[in-house]
Amino acid sequence: MPILLGTLLALVSVVVIVYPFIGSKKYRLVSDSFVTREKLRAERLRIYRKISDVEADFTSGDLTRADYQQQRDQLRIAAAEILKQESGSSISNVKRDEELEKQISRLREQSATSNEAPEGGDTL
């Protein structure tokens, strides 16, 4: 019985690691543009966090009004600059990726679609 269970476990493992090679779903490495966009977005959110921290400091009396306004404006501009980059990279990439999709659908053998979509949010 234990041997049987062990064999079963081994079989399951083999299936799990072989499946990505033979399954119908094809994988593509996450594109650099996607990573860049995710990074930019994360950085912008971090700046938002900093802005809310600066606001909290100001409310608690840690910052003078002048310092607060100066820091807040700097951070807002930084966030806006990232937003600009984000929209730039996003638009050009969407176009490029659409081209790619068309090509891929023509050559069905080659890798198409996505890396596993459900894996991972950005909660951590």
Binding site: Y48, F58, D73, Q74, I77, E81
Partner: peptide
Amino acid sequence: VKQKQNDLSDYLAHVDRDLSVGSAI
């Protein structure tokens, strides 16, 4: 800074919209 603010005014407005969601001020 002023110059930048003018260049980025669309984006700044967007940033401010984003911020108003979480802002406690």
